[in-house]
Simulated assay, not measured.
Amino acid sequence: MEYYRLPHSSLNVSKLCLGTMTWGEQNTQAEAYSQLDFAIGKGINFIDTAEMYPVPPKHETQGETERILGRYLKERGNRDQLIIATKISAPGGKSDYIRPNMALDWNNIQQAVDGSLQRLGIDCIDLYQLHWPDRNTNFFGQLHYEAQENEHFTPILETLEALAEMIRLGKIRYIGVSNETPWGLMKFLQLAEKHSLPRIVSVQNPYNLLNRSFEIGMSEICHRESLPLLAYSPMAFGALSGKYCHNQWPEGARMTVFKRFNRYSNNQQALDATQAYVDLAHQHQLSPAQLALAFVNQQSFVGSNIIGATNLAQLSENIDSLSLALSPEIKLALNELAKQYPVPCP
């Protein structure tokens, strides 16, 4: 396993992070425990969850993923060996059943932090992230920003001040953002510097071969501001494994079970691009999944790649992607395909 020190922090995270959003929905607690044991045995020390998980989000299951992780930490007694990241939900995500008012203000942040700490059964969260912005913008990897007149949202300064208080109280160590935009990143950095408030140390956004929009404006910020990407959805909901090619819908697979995750299967350009990347992997006798993950692993602006799986075979294959070094020939071919299929999945 390789490790990466998040700049402006003491967090030395594994280059692969174990995602958890299937626990409590597609995966049982026993299966989650097996994934954790296996991943930790392979050197993964970074676990990412959220108060909203599992997905698809529902009132009946909300918080169960954190509870599963909390029970695991208590039973295994290995909390000190791990870096635990979680996220607070915000307005606009159809999750107002979590709290009546989802604004990222002092009251909601305090409630959310305390709730996560209780479910996780820990005293302090290592990395606390804003799951998506508290304003109208094109989050979750969407394109086509549409301005809204007379918009009301919690000022970023107020959010930062509330997070600073959580750090002062010892409830969280570091903060990060997720599903952010270039404007949002720079605003968080600017306000933190101007008002001597905690600096965000990471950004968690979608990034994969089918959606390289992060490279347009965000990657330069990551480079120049030493603000690494925690890449999520590196396999495009599993599409880049090739298992959905030729209109195949494997039983129990995420996009088979949950049709809402059809961003990478609902248009012909996305399907054609997926097939092209799968064909390229086969031409070089490579696993399509490992090719997709290795592409993300080896980007200079990526601090950690968040992998997920519903079984140990998938998890093992995903972890082994770290040993795959892409040749200049393959990198060139990937870039050529990106020109042929530019951001096929908005």
Rank of each mutant, 00 (worst) to 15 (best):
Y4K: 04
E25A: 08
R99G: 09
I44G: 02
G92Y: 07
I68H: 12
S89T: 12
I83Q: 12
F38L: 07
H8A: 13
M21Y: 10
E31T: 10
N101S: 12
Q81G: 13
K94S: 15
S89W: 10
A32P: 04
A39D: 02
Q62F: 08
E66Y: 03
D96N: 13
Q62A: 14
I83S: 11
E64T: 11
V55K: 05
A85S: 15
G19R: 10
I84N: 00
Y4F: 15
S14D: 08
Y97V: 10
A85P: 00
S34N: 08
A103K: 14
E60K: 11
F38Y: 15
R99W: 12
P54Q: 07
Y97W: 15
N78K: 11
P100A: 14
D37G: 02
K87D: 05
L104S: 15
T28Q: 03
G70F: 06
A32R: 00
I98G: 06
L6A: 02
R71F: 08
E25L: 04
Q29V: 04
E51L: 06
E64S: 14
S95A: 14
L73A: 05
L18F: 07
H8Y: 10
W23S: 07
S34I: 00
S10T: 14
V13P: 01
K58S: 13
H59I: 11
L36V: 02
L36P: 02
P56K: 09
N27E: 04
G93E: 14
